[in-house]
Design a protein around this nucleic acid. Sequence first.
DNA 1: CTTCGTGCAAAGTTTTTGCATATGA
DNA 2: TCATATGCAAAAACTTTGCACGAAG
Lengths: 142, 142
Amino acid sequence: MNRQEILNKFKEKGLRVTPQRLTLFMKLAEMKGHIKAEDLYNALKEEIPSISISTVYRTLKEFESKGFIYSLPSSTDYGLTVFDTNLEPHHHFICLRCEKIYDVPEEYVEIKVKNIQGSIQYETVIMKGLCESCKNKKKKVS
Amino acid sequence: MNRQEILNKFKEKGLRVTPQRLTLFMKLAEMKGHIKAEDLYNALKEEIPSISISTVYRTLKEFESKGFIYSLPSSTDYGLTVFDTNLEPHHHFICLRCEKIYDVPEEYVEIKVKNIQGSIQYETVIMKGLCESCKNKKKKVS
DNA sequence: CTTCGTGCAAAGTTTTTGCATATGA
DNA sequence: TCATATGCAAAAACTTTGCACGAAG
């Protein structure tokens, strides 16, 4: 996504364009994955040394409410939010043993929803279980 | 679920039975919904005044790892985990405007998953959008 | 007995807020 | 202009930890 496309995206949602938001958005796209607010903050400081963590949180919240990103609970620690910056629709598999979060491509899952009265903006499937490598290890550990 | 069934569930997972765990489990079933650790703690104090918040957190973590409950990020506040105590499989619809979490019955959603190498223990769909009432209000509010 | 769970208090993390200033439209 | 975003610092909120004691199997 180039600069102009991002600007359009912002305008479309009525977001004022600031260097912080722009850089944050680009960083998210670049970091692809499940990012903690603080890691993002550290990465951003390299480009905008004066940026504050409050701005990061506020912007993240703003972006989520516009549907640009998605928040997930960390599988490891309660009270820690992880932001999924993979802007392509996709799903999640969380291993109950090693606690990794795996992205599952959209085409692996087929969903049909009926009877919902509201309007759905996007949807994601969260699966929990044992990932392949933990499944194989399972017998060896207690 | 009666007392005996709970005891079996515990034994099956190798959990030692204590009054705290038993009461907590029953409270969860009774409170059905999306519960914050602290609300649960307050409710529990009525039955076990000496119970501590650490026990609540530790037990919640234990229960989640055994698949008895499920943790979700609060849609309102980052860093706040909400425990879904609805023990029946079901899905979630989160309104981006009023931030309510609605349960969606399992039968409203049909999922087919392919190509997953791990073993799935359970899965839930999280949908985000506007709930019916917010969808209708939408035009009236800027 | 011996291992595991609990309570307490304290510490640790993560996130939010208020306010003055700066900036975008 | 003037409403909104930002930075800062401080507070709040939430969760985890260490340790000594108590309880379960």
